[in-house]
Design a protein around this nucleic acid. Structure first.
Lengths: 244, 244, 244, 244
DNA sequence: TATGAATGAGTCTTCATTCAT
DNA sequence: GATGAATGAAGACTCATTCAT
């Protein structure tokens, strides 16, 4: 079930000076193993290549035979991290027959996974700014596949009913995204609630409520879009200086 | 209504060697103006102090008369950024009498603000790892105040009804958090949907649906918590290596 | 009796942009007052001009009207510090008639002064490396005058006896220099002896013993000068590397 | 006999990122070689790390593989400098049988060594203010060992006689310290005497005279301790200002 | 292939000095 | 004359990357 079985780590875009492919694979695993530890603990920028090498049990020189730059390390880690998350999800729903069950399970599993791998999730969201052009594309594609898992499940769940297609797609995004609040607001939630367990259950309540909307008509009248434009920093400061 | 009018930038914890307080205020504004540009464009770590100074229209030497460290710059920017977001929110609901209207407006405004200040929001979520101990406390307190705005509005909205207190609190968190998906998943959403405008409207639909839960009993039966433990990176890799 | 009465602080070599001589004198006093405190506490290099200005109760701008460089500050402090030491000595022996008494008093007073002004003495010895060419000359001349005080006293003490002129001169140097051990080895002496008071008394014993030599023939046979030449650092390291 | 043969330079407290211990030793030697030159020429504070690296024939980056901070450089130089001085001393008296001879030789050798390594001695006395807490302890311990060499020799010299233990200990301090006058007052001595050679011989005369005191009763009556208190800088200046 | 020492460009920060007000 | 804000040159230190062995 582990993702590392199914997909070779060696990504097409990360080249190596080594010929032996099996060796590349093994070394990259080592690097990932070390790098994920260091990255999740200190973040991309504060992690030094030396630390990563040490945590990987290889030398810096060796590392650079399997990776061109520090960004490469980030990239192969990214691939690995996302696969941890999505493989778990796929496995959880494989073999399930009842679409209702399937939906409940994927929501639960996503929530649990995000919670279980907080460091990884935090890292993925925080360091997205470090990706280069090529990595962005890969990230994007991974992210979309992840969401599509939810989309498929939702579609099966409401098969035969009058689906609001747009809402179904958006629901997939929101359902997959919302549990990340456990990570991005963990300190705040920790203070505001007794236990994270109750928060997790609560989140599921809300998610299940949202699902209803996929086959429901909108009945709310909402105020028009406010006129908050993208006022630049200059605007705010100018405004202020007028009042000096 | 602009936050810079109401609250002086000079934060107590950021000391300066300059005596003229008005000047401190003015220069700090300049620094924020420059730094926010550079920070949002390149992130905290890739931004150099020199760039920030240049973008602020002052020299490095001058900058260090108003700020002790690069972290200080981050901190005053953080204060400014969060105040942009929360002041707008407060202003939007001030003077409203109808609690229903108030709730609709705060949801709308939060959504619009997050969307209008994507760079800022992105920056706030990404660079939270760069904060030091003192800053963390401040960040946390700001975040909680922000959420409490939603809590208050919700409480007024359902006054007199049978409120599920826990759900009300959690709803405040989720309602304030969910629109951030517009930022953290912007590329993905961009690809998956025709326009961000429709996404925004859709998000509001979901949020309004969730609100119902505040005064509703839970009626779902969900599967038990899955047994996803926090499997370490070692676990995954070991699993893999067994299969080599 | 204070030196500052007798000699105007304004040294010829430290120029000022200010016309009013009395003002120059007053400000320089302020500067000395502040600078000596800071210098003795932190040393020349670690003391900042800003600190000195603050300790002096004037602003940096004002300071630079009375002084051209940080070295100037060092210089006027040096003048002041040495005058503290030598004025006290002169005063102590003024009016004494008995040459024996005079000698005893000058030794005692020198010892006490060095001990009382440890910080100043330490500073004078440590920062001599910071003086520029011009300052060196001044320092030298001060130092020689100080030693000549001892020379004169010794000469009066042994008037009429068969003086070994060379030994008398050298004795003046050694007698004035030896008490500085209280400062330059203070930590070591502190550990090796019960109290500094007993060390002080002991030093006087040794000094008085030395004095005898001024009117005594040399009777020692000593080994020839050893052949320790000024072997350079290169020599030592080369020697070592030969043995690798 | 060279210290560098007998004791490896790598001090326990100065850590390095390099694994090859022999290389550490070699590089540290290079660094010492370069640093001593620069330090003795310009003093600790005016010496830049870049200069030291250049004088050592390595790059700055390389230097920082063998040393953590500029203070570390100072420290390894200190260790080296003091070992030059004390190893020479130990070697000089090793193998001597006659305690009288031994005493004469150690005095002579100490004098010659101080004179031969004026720059080093000057540096050691001037930069003691730059040491950090850890270095201070080391310095102190070295200094005390140095003095104890003299103490041991003196004890052997007067074995069997009625020793004044306090005077013996103090004599050890004074005997080891006095020749430093050749360095700390070199300019002054240069002007006051024909040749430094005669000064050196004269110093030995005085030292030998002092030795007598170790087995002699005190017979001097000296005036009481003068009342020179540690008058602060404020005192002097206040006194002055009263007379304005 | 593996190693780890060497490199130097780049970063944050300090502070003596100047000068407009 | 007094002020104190502005300046920028210089300094210590880091670390991703290379390359000889």
């Amino acid at each position: 079930m582990n993702n590392l079985k199914t997909r070779p780590i060696k990504s097409k875009s990360v080249v190596s000076s080594i010929k032996n492919e099996a060796l590349i694979d093994r070394r990259r695993k080592q690097i990932i193993q070390g790098a994920v530890k260091v990255f999740t603990a200190k973040g991309f920028h504060k992690a030094t290549v030396r630390e990563i090498a040490e945590a990987s049990g290889i030398t810096m020189g060796t590392m650079y035979n399997y990776v061109r730059t520090k960004e490469d390390i980030l990239f192969i880690c990214y691939e690995y991290m996302t696969s941890i998350l999505s493989e778990g999800l796929k496995e959880a729903i494989s073999g399930l027959e009842d679409p209702r069950e399937e939906l409940r399970v994927i929501l639960r599993r996503n929530l649990d996974t995000v919670y279980a791998h907080q460091d990884i999730v935090m890292f993925l969201y925080q360091e997205s700014g470090a990706y280069d052009q090529e990595a962005i594309r890969s990230v994007l594609s991974q992210e979309m596949k992840y969401v599509e898992l939810f989309e498929d499940v939702l579609r099966r769940r409401f098969e035969g009913q009058k689906i609001n297609e747009f809402r179904l797609r958006l629901a997939a995004d929101i359902l997959s995204y919302t549990p990340v609040i456990l990570v991005l607001r963990r300190w705040s939630l920790n203070r505001r609630f007794e236990s994270m367990e109750e928060v997790k259950e609560g989140i599921l309540d809300f998610l299940e409520k949202e699902i209803e909307l996929v086959v429901e008509d909108c009945k709310y009248e909402r105020p028009m879009k406010t006129t908050e434009e993208n006022k630049s920093i200059e605007y705010w400061l100018t405004t202020y200086q007028d009042t000096l």
